[in-house]
């Protein structure tokens, strides 16, 4: 068994066509998850009675089980729920007409939400109490304090963590191939089994992921510099 180097390039070009799906599966869940995470973090930061219990349970469960479990649970669970609802209301839609991508996005958004809420929470707790007190002292209300003082500082603080999470999710999307999605890993699998060149196809896939990761890291470096332009840290 020798490595067929030209085939790596052929596979790489083929995999590039699958990259948009991987990027969609990465960024859409992270963006939806950001809003979930923000609300969950706020609920937990302000200790809203009943809601914060639910939020704690949600974060703990989704951080405690593998992402593949969430994809599978949503993939098998939601159609079942929908079927019951459709039967009950006598609707004319069918649950199997929903594209699988949607299930993957829902599952990954929920996963991203739980991780992001922890990141945002740690960002919030890194903003010193004096900032809040000063904001209240000049007559801001709670909403203003959160929006103008706490969040901008907390989010700027969390940029390295956001980058890690986005890269983590880029890698998590590779398990979407288990529910027959044709993203990079899925495409690599198809190319590999079509040509019986597994190693070459996965080397190409690895390179592609590596390049995307490097681009994300470079972008986040620039963003972090911009976001932290006004903070003078001790180090």
């Amino acid at each position: 068994m020798t490595i067929d180097f030209p085939f790596i390039w052929i596979a790489f070009k083929e995999l590039l066509k699958a990259a948009p799906l991987t990027l969609t599966l990465t960024f859409v869940p992270v963006i939806i998850g950001f809003f979930i995470g923000l609300s969950v973090a706020m609920i937990r930061a302000y200790n809203l009675k009943f809601l914060s219990r639910i939020a704690n349970g949600y974060v703990s469960f989704f951080r405690g089980t593998p992402a593949i479990m969430h994809i599978m649970l949503i993939y098998f669970g939601i159609p079942l729920l929908l079927d019951i609802l459709i039967d009950y209301f006598h609707l004319r839609i069918q649950s199997n007409s929903i594209p699988i991508v949607l299930f993957v996005i829902i599952a990954l958004s929920l996963t991203a939400g739980s991780y992001l809420s922890e990141i945002i929470r740690s960002g919030i707790s890194s903003v010193s109490k004096g900032q809040t007190e000063a904001a209240y002292a000049i007559g801001m209300n709670t909403f203003q304090v959160v929006k103008r003082i706490i969040l901008p500082q907390a989010l700027a603080q969390s940029i390295p963590n956001f980058t890690n999470l986005i890269i983590g999710f880029l890698h998590t999307t590779s398990i979407a191939f288990l529910v027959s999605q044709k993203e990079i890993t899925g495409a690599a699998n198809i190319i590999a089994s079509k040509n019986l060149k597994f190693l070459e196809a996965f080397i190409a896939a690895g390179l592609l992921y590596w390049i995307i990761t490097a681009i994300i890291e470079a972008v986040s470096y620039v963003v972090e510099k911009k976001a932290k332009a006004y903070t003078n840290s001790a180090i």
Partner: peptide, 12 residues
């Protein structure tokens, strides 16, 4: 290692 998914590493 940090730039590729664990699944790809597993296959590699």
């Amino acid at each position: 290692i940090r730039g590729t998914p664990i699944l790809i590493q597993l296959f590699l």
